[in-house]
Design a protein around this nucleic acid. Sequence first.
DNA 1: CTGAAAGCGCTTACAG
DNA 2: CTGAAAGCGCTTACAG
Lengths: 345, 345
Amino acid sequence: MDKRRRITLNDIARACGVSRATVSLVLRGSPLVHPETRRLVEAEMQRQGYVYNRAAANLRQRVSSAVALVINDLSNPFFAEFAAGVDEALGAKGYVTLLGSSNESPARQRQVLGSLMEHHPAGIILSPAESSMASDVALAIGRHTPLLVFNRQLTGDAEPGFEYDFLGLDNRAGTRAATARLIALGHRRIAFYGGHAGSSSCRERRIGYQEALREAGIAPDERWLIETAPTRLEANAHADALLALEPAPTAAVCYNDAVALGLMLGLVRLGRRPGEDFAVTGFDDIPEAAVGIPPLTTVSAAPRQRGRQAAELLLQRAASPSIPGRSVIVPVHLTERDSAPAPAS
Amino acid sequence: MDKRRRITLNDIARACGVSRATVSLVLRGSPLVHPETRRLVEAEMQRQGYVYNRAAANLRQRVSSAVALVINDLSNPFFAEFAAGVDEALGAKGYVTLLGSSNESPARQRQVLGSLMEHHPAGIILSPAESSMASDVALAIGRHTPLLVFNRQLTGDAEPGFEYDFLGLDNRAGTRAATARLIALGHRRIAFYGGHAGSSSCRERRIGYQEALREAGIAPDERWLIETAPTRLEANAHADALLALEPAPTAAVCYNDAVALGLMLGLVRLGRRPGEDFAVTGFDDIPEAAVGIPPLTTVSAAPRQRGRQAAELLLQRAASPSIPGRSVIVPVHLTERDSAPAPAS
DNA sequence: CTGAAAGCGCTTACAG
DNA sequence: CTGAAAGCGCTTACAG
């Protein structure tokens, strides 16, 4: 750190010939202090380049002005947008964001949570790594820090008394709408491509897909469920598994946009033309979905707005910790673009 | 906040019948304390669920364990990856990341910096909003907090005494290599597409491009310089300006990958086939460059590694503030994929 | 409207 | 090896 002593309240008080308490009142805009005194003090702070030490104030007041945000995968634009939304809303409310990224590793996530807890945040927003255990999270953050979990449910049960809010997307309705639309276009053999069946969001999205099939009188075929890690790279690599089916599907409902974009590239690599002779839908509506080639038909989840919403929910809970754990499921809607045409005659 | 009193060092000390000082020594693994006492204290901390209050410790020690990271555009994967790299490296060194995002607004940036300064970070990593003034930044953070600026130079001069480190890419060499490659493939009419001429990175990239043209005996045409905001959306919208030129260029060196991906979509919209009858190159090598359609020939900058590097540089300076402002320019290299073929005969 | 004193949860010399 | 006291930079009653 820098050697020079920092300017403190004391310096200002001494220079102005008033007490620390008076300067403190000026700082927080109290009406108690005489306008003339206020002007004097403010000028002196300006002159000396005083900068408030919020950590010291928070210590005394026993409050926190920080919220921890732990993200599983910042390189996925869906989560990057979410993070931007969280930070925006927290900043507007005077909170600062403590960032942590787990890179989808539950071990790293535990470590990151532990380190963030030492800063006694007012709350935690967690977009969990795949297959994070509720009991691990409970252990890391204890039962007194408000927690909001985003997007994926924690697996397993924590001890009773560990409560948290949940903000998720209506996964089932989303894939159901996408699948129904494909059926309406004339598709009959529709795969569900990508994601890990273990994750709550993947499970829910598969259910919506199967519901739409059954509703149309189509028997879901087990082999139409193809697992891949939820990344572009993995989705690209497994495209051949989809085309190897006999008879091959004519359409794929994908776990998310990253998977859909990867699959489309894989299809091109294998000589197919997604958007012309094969239909693909995504989930999330990340910014590049609209400007892909072809533009992606997908389920829109507005990640930046979700981030703002997550921040609101968390701060509400921090303000009244007595409310029991809530679960907010956000409606989503299908955005049609060009990647999902009718089946090639 | 929660009503219940937090467990403190005092509680542990009292429960164990030792002094606070002893518990403090246990906490920091001092060899001075008797092994038996240590075991006792540790067991008690476990039992009561004690969590260290790093803010209080930092206050007493007059140090900071936080570094502020201010990002201009988290929805650009280049910067999201950079942020992930910074957080990773800082976490490994025991620092926590204070996140702020400016959304490319200098006003918002000033506000965010001011709020982060109140947390007295050990240093600041700033990826500046477009056309941020050095004097504004100097005003917001003062002259005693180590600063590392990433990617873009600050415009204008600050008062003397305001020093900072700079980490940037070798922009000139990057676009020069891309342009030279296009020329080698047989292109003669090559545009420079996208970016704002006011930004230092755009200026440098244009220079590299013009150098390569001149070296090949091609006179750069003013009209080949087309400005757009550095986003997918804007790049897409202005594609017609490129094709309207007479005679039309056969290739475009783009300001960055976001612009290149947007331009390619715009070209498709206008009936062209990038990668077949038009050559496009990017800059950054964001993850989706490799899996675009066609895969993008681009200049690789390895943003996540740059993030780790930025964290290292900043912590070095924080450790020895006496070193004068350094400027580290990272070499980049051309990654050839399919988006830049030879000109259509 | 302003000041003197105590305290937030830690660490740091200084004794012993 | 352990304890008593002072202090980091603030805020909070309590007097006046």
